[in-house]
Simulated assay, not measured.
Amino acid sequence: MIKKIVLSTLLFITISACKQTKEIEKNTTTDTTFQFAKNISIQETETSITIKSSGNTVTFDKKELPIQTVMVETASAITYLDDLNALNTLKGVSDADFVYNPKIALGIANKTILNIGNNNELFSEVILKNKPQLIIASSNPVLAKFHQQLEQNGIKILYLDEYKEQNPLGQVEYLKIFGKLFGKNDVATKHVETVKNRYDSIKNIIQTQGKGTVSTLANTMYGDVWYAPTKDLLQAKLIEDAKGNYIFNDKSGENSLSLTFEEVYKKGKAATHWINVTNFDNLQQMKASYPNYAWFDAFKSGNVYAYSNRMNAKGANDYFEKGIIRPDFILNDLGKIFYPNLFPKHELYFYKQLK
């Protein structure tokens, strides 16, 4: 009798242990590794995916995936979807007129994509009437009250601020999020790896063969202030990888520098190249807007470049869309600008030289 009781007890313990083991396995969390992106994380169990980004957390039951309907507030989200051939899930866009991708204008015209708002407001009635599974937004405080209302009505919002990443390859890695959510995981992983390998290859050519004889000035005046990146920001990272010897590479911080013209001129008068000037088609326009621009050596030699080679009539710029997922294209452009002999067959894609 005692022997039977012992055996029964052992059997019960074994069965309980097996159940607990299976339950542990079911709830085991695995993290998606991001090599370069610092502002996001993905945790995954057998039944769910949790994304932490921009101080917010959103969890998806895997039974909800892949996402079938989505609305977006950022052009970058459109870029990620398009790269994964998932634009068929896109049902609404904010600020559609400022999107470069021509597929969006076509969708708006055909009414397969709805206009859901702008930087100042969201059309909540339109969104709630069509009730997408997901809205992809940036952490814009102006729209916080709209987001709160939508979440209270059961709509999930994923906040993505890829522009805060300090490494251009970090922005590319956001594709992994879209891959997880839209059933394109393998495609996303392959794209990230392809871009990384090409970026590293271009960087290696520049770093090993570029003579390092150039120096770079960036941006222009905005009102009375000249905003310039610190060495920690993405723009400066691209210049560094292109061996451009950025003039403010001794300044650190996560916010742009706010400088006077005199401060920039003191450091940048003799810079050999000037990149990322905006809203100008030629040097004459640039000089007319601010005559002192002509004092810089780079202006005098004509080594002035804008990233507006792919800009439509409404001012939407593909540099801020496709450039997010193709930093290898940007780096190739900068390599051509700084060291043209290293890339004799490359034609500028995002950049153009002002004449």
Rank of each mutant, 00 (worst) to 15 (best):
T208Q: 15
I337P: 00
F329Q: 13
G323H: 04
S289N: 07
Y351L: 05
L257I: 00
V192P: 01
I13W: 11
T69D: 07
R198T: 13
G55S: 07
S252C: 05
D61M: 12
Y80M: 04
S215M: 05
T112Q: 06
D224W: 10
D61R: 07
G302L: 07
Q148S: 13
I51V: 11
D241M: 07
N197I: 09
L134G: 03
I135S: 03
E25D: 09
Y293V: 00
V6S: 12
G302T: 05
K111S: 09
A105Y: 08
E263Y: 08
I155D: 04
R326H: 15
G170M: 02
E263K: 11
D297V: 06
F182T: 06
Q152P: 07
K269A: 08
K38Q: 13
A316K: 00
L354G: 02
A270G: 08
D83H: 13
D31H: 14
V6R: 15
N56G: 09
L84A: 03
K269C: 03
N309K: 14
L7I: 15
M311C: 12
Y159C: 05
E73L: 15
Y307S: 10
G179C: 08
L348E: 05
V99M: 15
Q35S: 14
N167C: 03
A37R: 03
K237L: 15
G253M: 01
N110F: 09
I67E: 03
G210V: 02
I155R: 05
Q148Y: 12
Q285R: 01
A17I: 11
S139F: 12
V172R: 00
T28D: 10
A188E: 01
L143C: 02
I15R: 09
Y351W: 06
Q133T: 08
F60K: 09
I5H: 06
S54T: 07
T69V: 13
T50R: 12
G210E: 05
L354K: 02
Y222L: 14
V277G: 00
F261W: 03
I155N: 05
R198P: 06
Y305V: 01
R198M: 13
N341L: 09
F320W: 15
L217S: 04
V277M: 06
D161C: 13
E262D: 06
V195Y: 12
L217T: 04
Y222W: 11
N197Y: 11
G244Y: 04
L65K: 01
F60E: 01
A236N: 03
Y100P: 03
I275L: 10
K237R: 14
